[in-house]
């Protein structure tokens, strides 16, 4: 990788992380309780703990906060089956 490409890549990552931090601080303060009821009364230790992940995955959480989406349901093969799929 040449210096120009490396500098460009690091600049993009820095920009993404800066936007993530700008989003992340109000999100862990207010937004997280809007998308997950268990986070509404969450401790400050918990809020700081999730901040690095929020900075990394901020587009997903911004979309969820904007649309006020609750936590999704995890689907197993059995749960897909009881929604009309065939069993065996």
């Amino acid at each position: 990788m040449n210096v120009q490409w490396a500098s460009g890549l690091l600049l993009l990552i820095a920009l993404y992380a800066t936007l993530g931090l700008c989003f992340g601080l109000p999100f862990v303060w207010r937004g997280v309780g809007r998308i997950d009821p268990q986070a509404e009364q969450g401790s400050w230790g918990f809020r700081w703990m999730i901040l690095p992940g929020v900075v990394a995955l901020w587009p997903l959480l911004a979309w969820r906060w904007w649309h006020r989406r609750p936590p999704p349901t995890a689907w197993t093969a059995h749960q897909r089956g009881d929604k009309g799929g065939t069993a065996e």
């Binding site: 997280v32 268990q38 999730i50 992940g53």
Partner: peptide, 12 residues
Amino acid sequence: ATSHDFWLANLT
């Protein structure tokens, strides 16, 4: 960064 249970619930 995603090791907390919050991420389990929110990523599934």
